[in-house]
């Protein structure tokens, strides 16, 4: 009788341990996945709205002609996404945040700012070239 009571107690204790071991994992998986999916949808929608707002300033015929050309010609055999991710190289981004730039020439440790900075420089270079070609003519 005493033995079976102890067995029952042990069984209950074991069950309780199993429950406390399993529950956090299930909850973690659930709470991790849903927000990421929602965040992803939110980001893509935000980007889409922002681009649509900029596209509204341009002629529809010009935009559709350009898009057609870009889709078929600019990156044959590759994708813009692969270029944007530097996906030709294996990923090394799983742990620490990347520090890819020094602080020279207006660049900081923030990669996003650096990309914007590079775009700004390229635009300035192109403007400068246009102005120079006008002077030469």
């Amino acid at each position: 009788m005493r033995n079976s009571f102890e067995q029952l107690n042990n069984q209950e204790q074991q069950d309780a341990e199993n429950i406390t071991d399993e529950q956090p994992i299930q909850q973690e998986t659930r709470s991790e996945q849903v927000p990421i999916e929602e965040r992803v949808d939110g980001v893509l929608e935000k980007q889409d709205n922002e681009i649509s707002r900029q596209e509204a300033k341009h002629d529809k015929k010009t935009l559709s002609g350009f898009k057609k050309f870009m889709a078929t010609t600019m990156l044959v055999g590759s994708s813009f996404l692969a270029v944007g991710c530097n996906a030709e190289k294996p990923s090394v981004e799983n742990s620490a945040p990347q520090k890819t730039e020094s602080r020279q020439g207006g660049f900081t440790d923030n990669v996003h700012d650096n990309v914007q900075q590079r775009l700004k420089i390229k635009r300035a270079e192109i403007k400068h070239m246009h102005e120079n070609s006008r002077i030469v003519k």
Binding site: I36, R39, V43
Partner: peptide, 25 residues
């Protein structure tokens, strides 16, 4: 003349914006 760099920088900016936004939570 810098169209390749322009494409790369633009693609990186869109990807970067995506990654930063989803990591903010």
């Amino acid at each position: 003349p810098v169209i390749d760099s322009l494409i790369k920088a633009t693609a990186e900016a869109v990807v970067r914006e995506f990654k930063i936004s989803i990591s903010k939570g």
